[in-house]
């Protein structure tokens, strides 16, 4: 058999998703089907066609460098699962371990 189109365990790890072995076994063939389906598009000959980055052919949606009001801090922190002072709280991170 060919190399699988997707490695679900690897992708789950990159996405920080914890999957049980049963779940991995269910998702692996399902996601392979999806990827193979999408891959059909690679069979189209696109020789000489520039890559399209966006569905609409517009460019330069730029904004001027003008300050707009930010949101109130209490509102910004309202959905934080936990806060430390006026910051979003995290578990203790060992500085410099990863970035």
């Amino acid at each position: 058999m060919n190399k699988p189109a997707i490695d679900v365990a690897y992708v789950a790890e990159l996405a920080r998703l914890e999957l049980t072995d049963e779940e991995k076994a269910v998702f692996q063939p399902q996601l392979e089907d999806i990827v193979r389906y999408v891959e059909k598009i690679s069979s189209v000959d696109v020789e000489g066609v520039p890559p399209t980055m966006h569905g609409r052919a517009i460019v330069n949606a730029l904004r001027e460098d003008e300050v707009r009001p930010s949101m109130p801090r209490e509102e910004a922190l309202a959905n934080a699962p936990a806060r430390t002072g006026d910051e979003f709280m995290l578990p203790k991170i060992v500085e410099g371990a990863e970035s």
Partner: peptide, 11 residues
Amino acid sequence: INHYATTSGVD
């Protein structure tokens, strides 16, 4: 990310 004694916080 700011580091404190028992937690870290994001600004």
